[in-house]
């Protein structure tokens, strides 16, 4: 009898609690956080800086991303984002097999560079089998061949105030009212000078395919995929990225993603 009494009351209470929970979820009270101008969102975004400070401060800055074996490559590298750029200057390069492609290295450097693919391939190269982690949650292992970005930067010679490397790309990722938005990214010198940060022109033993960023893409192995710009057109060394695009340091960063993608 005691059990019956409690059960009835319990049902009422549980029903009330359930109703309250459903109302809380249903009224979308937290949707204000999706607004880029929301002050609470700005406050929460500061946790990203805390994460970066913790990872840069507590972990070994020279640490190498895990490298895998050839037999770990079990599938083609999954392409993501833009996979077939329709920009006319890019299509012209595709038509000629990138023979006229020149990577320009400019900005805060002593000796601006204009490098062909042959120039890059003649430099000391690095080959690494690494796991590509997409912000969406998936991972894919592939082998990458390329020139360490540090070697290219050393060749150009950095000037004082060289804080960030800005990667400008061929591919239009979005067409807005103000015109075409081309992909761009920035990394700082800790990652730019890291030995595994390479300008890759080869993948899984062959030339880098178009869906994966031909002729040249960035590999930043200790961060997520959106940092690893594809279809690289030019490299600029800058002291700040405040004036580029939306000012947050990259295409996805301008759309709310964190500049530091080590998590």
């Amino acid at each position: 009898m005691c059990a019956t009494r409690i059960t009835r009351r319990t049902v009422l209470r549980l029903g009330g609690a359930g109703l309250a929970t459903a109302t809380l979820g249903g009224c979308k009270v937290f949707d204000r956080l999706a607004d880029p101008a929301d002050p609470l969102r700005h406050y929460m975004e500061r946790a990203n800086r805390l994460t970066m400070a913790a990872q840069r401060g507590l972990l070994d800055r020279e640490a190498m991303a895990q490298e895998f074996q050839w037999f770990d490559i079990r599938q083609p590298q999954r392409p993501n984002g833009v996979t077939d750029p329709q920009d006319s200057d890019y299509l012209a390069h595709v038509a000629t097999g990138f023979s006229g492609y020149r990577l320009s290295v400019s900005g805060l450097v002593k000796r601006p560079q204009t490098l062909s693919l042959a120039d890059l391939e003649a430099m000391p190269t690095r080959r690494q089998i690494t796991r590509h982690d997409c912000v969406e949650g998936w991972s894919c292992i592939a082998q990458w061949t390329g020139v360490p970005l540090s070697a290219v930067l050393d060749r150009a010679g950095l000037l004082p105030g060289a804080n960030f490397v800005l990667i400008r790309c061929f591919d239009t990722i979005e067409r807005s009212l103000s015109g075409a938005v081309k992909y761009y990214e920035t990394i700082d010198m800790v990652d730019a000078m890291h030995p595994q940060t390479i300008l890759a022109f080869g993948m899984n033993g062959s030339a880098l395919p178009v869906p994966n960023g031909a002729p040249l893409r960035l590999r930043v192995e200790r961060q997520l995929g959106y940092k690893m710009a594809k279809y690289i057109r030019a490299i600029e060394v800058v002291d700040s990225f405040a004036g580029v695009g939306g000012g947050r340091g990259g295409y996805w960063e301008d759309r709310g993603y964190a500049w530091y993608a080590g998590i």
Partner: peptide, 18 residues
């Protein structure tokens, strides 16, 4: 948030993880 919004989801997730 209620809509598909990975960027905001990550901001909220890492804040409350801390």
């Amino acid at each position: 948030p209620s809509g598909m919004d990975l960027a905001t989801g990550r901001i909220v997730h890492f804040f409350f993880a801390w």
